[in-house]
Simulated assay, not measured.
Amino acid sequence: MRNQIPAFRKHLLQHVGLKEASVNLYILKIQELIKWMEGNAYETSPEAITRKRIEEYLEWCFRQRNSNVTRRTKLVALRRFFTFLLYDEIIQADPSLRIPLPRPGKRNVRIFTQDEVLRIFQTCSIETEKGLRDVAIFILAAFGGLRASEICDLKIENLIEDGDNFYLQVENSKFGESRIITNIWKIPRQFLTAYISFRLTAHGAGPGSPLLVSYRRGGKVKGHKLTEGALDQLLKKLAGLSQIRKSRVNMHMFRSSHATDLRKIEGWEVESIAKRLGHANIQTTADNYFGDWNPVRKKFASLAAYWKRFNLKLWIKEGAIAEG
């Protein structure tokens, strides 16, 4: 089977027209089957693969606690592969054809809609220093997809502006690896740099100081590094003021929303989304955001185009700042 993988890759790219990231995911699933067969000393030639063997493999995946979505993804990849082998006249019948696809089940990922995210932003007063901090928090979560812990750990020096380029450097990720977050467009960049200006001038902070700090009730800076619990409390308060009717809200919902948003943007596939989110395993991204239960037709050229309603008019309309 390994010998057919290069031709299968070419077929998916040139004949089917799939993106590179999608092709890589299919190839990965085929390689996982081959590895399992070799580990069990099974014959791996295409002609030796039977429906019984594939069912045995899927049962093994079930015992390994693979979710229904994961096993469904694997079987879909195998069907693609055997369809290609039929097309190339390497086999005479598809052994995967009559194997039922596992039901994907109900999605557990909780997200905010775009309208809900904008309403949360509207509750932040951009006339106050604390309000600008709150806007910065939600920009990092909703437009950057950062984890709450990563937002708390950001230092001023982690926001880097180099001419027309602006990016975030995440140093303390969940798995100890660093990554760069790009595609932060003009409007959110202006809010972030405005708050950094407060930190550097009014607070006397340095490049190595925490980016986001706590405030007293009257709005005076307290200066303590924020905690994940503080972020969730802030979100719950503002979600209530925004009249968002959800039984439970937390900061991770912004991250899930961001991943879902990226699926609507041209050029973003499972591989690039996994890299942006800092997932250690691309399968996590595929299971959560690329299941068959959630088809998406991409319509937007960029995140800026998708979030075009995020601008100063958002606050002018609600009277948060005076016109003129």
Rank of each mutant, 00 (worst) to 15 (best):
R2A: 03
I5C: 07
P6D: 03
F8A: 09
G17T: 12
K19F: 09
A21N: 10
N24G: 13
L25K: 02
L28S: 06
I34A: 04
M37Y: 06
M37R: 02
E43P: 00
S45F: 06
T50F: 11
K52N: 05
R53S: 04
I54H: 01
E55Y: 03
E59P: 00
W60H: 08
N66K: 14
S67F: 08
S67M: 11
R71N: 12
R71M: 15
T73N: 14
L78P: 01
T83C: 09
F84D: 01
L86T: 10
I91K: 10
D94Y: 12
S96V: 14
L97E: 13
R103P: 01
G105L: 10
K106E: 11
R110Q: 09
F112Y: 08
F112D: 00
D115S: 12
L118G: 03
R119D: 08
F121A: 04
C124F: 10
S125G: 06
T128L: 15
T128D: 09
E129R: 15
A136N: 05
I137E: 02
L140M: 15
G145C: 13
A148K: 09
S149D: 03
I151A: 05
D153F: 14
I156Y: 08
F166M: 12
L168R: 08
N172H: 15
E177P: 03
S178K: 15
R179T: 11
K186F: 11
I187W: 05
A194P: 00
Y195M: 08
I196P: 00
F198S: 00
F198V: 10
R199Y: 06
H203P: 00
G204S: 08
A205I: 06
A205L: 08
G208D: 10
S214P: 04
R216S: 06
G218A: 07
H224S: 11
E228R: 14
D232F: 12
Q233Y: 11
L234F: 05
K236N: 01
L238Q: 04
A239H: 01
A239R: 03
L241T: 02
S247T: 12
R248S: 13
N250R: 07
M253D: 04
F254K: 05
R255G: 11
R255F: 14
S256Y: 13
S256F: 10
H258P: 00
A259N: 06
I265G: 03
E266A: 12
E271P: 01
L277G: 06
G278C: 13
G278E: 09
G291W: 03
D292R: 13
K298G: 06
F300G: 05
A305N: 07
F310C: 02
F310D: 01
K313W: 01
W315H: 03
W315A: 02
I316C: 01
I316E: 03
E318H: 07
E318V: 07
E318P: 00
E318Q: 09
A320W: 04
E323A: 14
G324A: 14
